[in-house]
Amino acid sequence: MRTASGATLDFGRLALLLLLMGASWYFWYSPVLWPVKVLVVMMHESGHAIASLLVGGSVDRVHLQLNEGGSCFSRLPPGVFNRVIVSSAGYLGSAVAGAGLMLATFRFRLGRAVMGAASVWLAVMGFFYAGDLFTLAFCLGMALAMGLGARFLPTGLVDALNLFLSAFTALYVIFDLRDDLWNSAVRAQSDAAILASETWVPSIVWAALWTLLSLALLAVSAYWAMHAKPGGGVKLPPVARARRV
């Protein structure tokens, strides 16, 4: 399969992506994956925080919880539009993070820079916005791990870890949307319920909109990330030719 730019489907990348998603699904309840789940929760809360700043508001604090919960407390300028943007930025922010990881790592070959940027992001969230000791320790610990990985790990392993994070994030977003927005009891306490009270648009409509946008974003980014640009693969060093005597 070839795109308009001439990029072709990289079956190796696709197979690895599907393998990682399958492994994540199979080991979903393993405690080994707990730090990655909390990391995705931080992506969600960071989406709220960034949106709050973009609309001219401020962020008081961000909390992460051991049970994979999270919250972002911010102050917003008055207006329904600001509330819509900030409330929508949680679920969509997680989808944007997963999509960005895939595209930056495999479409633009920026895997090491992405891991370094993630380290800086976590350090900033920890130092400036952590609202409790656990959130601070988690952010700084993950920032240190990612910083060391970006500095010392081989490029291939960095790419593999980024792909795992993007695959896991995509899967978590899907499960999160299903559990939070399509469960009526949970939806009544979710961001969708907040917007329903602000806009008079039913929470189920917001749930459907966020689900469609998130899935579309992840699908498009996966499509582009799994297609290698012509000549964009890993290049081996040239082999020196022996001189004739």
Rank of each mutant, 00 (worst) to 15 (best):
A15R: 15
Y172V: 02
L177Q: 03
N162E: 06
S71N: 10
G70I: 02
S58I: 01
G116E: 11
V245Y: 15
A7T: 14
V201H: 08
G93M: 02
L213G: 15
I174V: 07
V59S: 05
P237E: 03
G93N: 09
H227D: 03
H44Y: 08
A240N: 10
L209I: 15
L20I: 06
Q189T: 12
I50G: 01
L217P: 00
I174W: 12
F11P: 00
A150P: 13
V201C: 12
A137G: 09
L217G: 05
L236I: 15
R151Y: 06
R178Q: 11
V41W: 02
M226Q: 07
F164I: 13
K37T: 07
D132G: 04
S30M: 09
V80L: 07
P35N: 08
L101W: 08
A193C: 05
V220A: 13
S87Q: 13
I204M: 08
F27C: 13
F168K: 05
E45T: 08
A123L: 07
P77A: 10
G131Q: 15
A51N: 03
F108D: 03
L181C: 09
R109T: 09
L165R: 00
M142Q: 09
L92M: 12
P230V: 03
L212H: 11
A228W: 05
R244E: 11
A95S: 01
L76M: 02
